[in-house]
Nucleic acid binder design. Structure first.
Lengths: 208, 208
DNA sequence: GTCGGACTTTGTCAATTGACAAAATAACCG
DNA sequence: CGGTTATTTTGTCAATTGACAAAGTCCGAC
């Protein structure tokens, strides 16, 4: 869907890409849990159930693993959004915005890694941050603007960036620090009831 | 103001606590920039302009440094809030909420470390997260509930937790990833104009 | 069956980590 | 001044890190 899938020239391969995918999955979990620097390649290997040496066979280095992991989570997000959009096509603009926002909240509740990668990449090398923005964030951001989420509330287009980060932050933080939230407020943000409450709260906030 | 300040029994000390405070300041910056695990004691020492060995003279270990750094940023926050509250005492409840929120946004814009510590601690040891909640977050949270921020918008008290994390996330994310925001939207979140825009946007969101 | 390449493990490397000890310096008190 | 304590540097330690090489294993083609 984006980078690193390479040419499709039927390479001779014993196990398809199953192993490679399981490594990417493990990398997503590890990077999401501890951030890039604090994640060791040995932990990723352990999560994938393989030896550490195998990582450098499938990926040239740790950073390539991070790129692949980031590609994966955003590819998944894009697939999901595509599906949601077709479902909401026949609603009024306002109702589509409300439902769309609620769906975003629900998705981010089960995929806190998106928020964690965003925050983490923002404080690593420019190389990683620039690539993340240009490859994955910009398309999402431009889409949000064109799709008219901005039109709701008569928002000045110059404020679209503020709306984007406000929505992303308001939506994600509670799920990104769910154990903290549980101890602080008693709300278990992993429960469906809490997720629905948050979705409705955010929708009311953004589209009254 | 909270832990670690110890008894005030005039210990014989050559330089007061100047050195210790400069270490804490350096620790705040380093932990905020890279997170706990990815911050080396040697970087903290470098930021403070001292040798690494000196850290273990003033603090028993790295974790104690994190506690001291966390104490410091929340003590600063509490001092600031105290001052703001007295200023806003004679306003109507609604106007006080609006102004108060705007003031919080402005403060967090220049103190992104609060958000970074919150997110980071949420994914470290339970010991650190529990201490952060019990010592620093709970008082803030309880205050917000009692102070009536919840009453605005006729909010169900059971939703106070959602409002808290929504407000914190909506406010902080754009400043916590300011370089990312700059590249994605063109908005420089370190500029006063952008800060004011965000403050007004958030205030309109929470108290229409 | 066996050959060749794809896959995987095992072992090793220099660099970095947090912690600590011992030596060196600086500031105060009398 | 001389002695004592506080502060700071320097050197060292075992453990962990990302990367790599060498050797082993597996599988399909011929």
């Amino acid at each position: 869907m984006s980078m690193s899938t390479g040419t499709k020239t039927q390479r001779k391969s014993h196990h398809g890409n199953a192993r490679k995918e399981s490594i990417v999955h493990a990398a997503v979990g590890a990077f999401s849990a501890h951030g890039y620097d604090a994640t060791s390649t040995r932990e990723i290997a352990k999560r994938a159930g393989i030896e550490q040496g195998l990582l450098t066979y499938h990926f040239p280095n740790k950073q390539a693993l991070w790129f692949a992991a980031t590609d994966h989570i955003f590819d998944q997000l894009n697939i999901h959004i595509e599906g949601v959009l077709t479902e909401l096509r026949e609603l009024t603009e306002k109702e589509r915005a409300r439902q769309g926002i609620q769906e975003v909240v629900r998705y981010l509740s089960t995929h806190p890694e998106l928020f964690r990668f965003l925050v983490d990449a923002g404080n690593r090398s420019d190389e990683m941050m620039h690539w993340l923005v240009d490859t994955h964030l910009k398309p999402r951001f431009d889409f949000m603007i064109n799709e008219g989420v901005v039109n709701i509330r008569g928002l000045n287009p110059a404020m679209a960036g503020h709306a984007f980060f406000a929505l992303a932050g308001a939506t994600s933080l509670i799920f990104a620090v769910a154990p903290t939230c549980k101890r602080l407020t008693g709300i278990d943000a992993t429960q469906q009831a809490a997720i629905d409450n948050h979705a409705e709260f955010i929708a009311n906030l953004m589209v009254p």
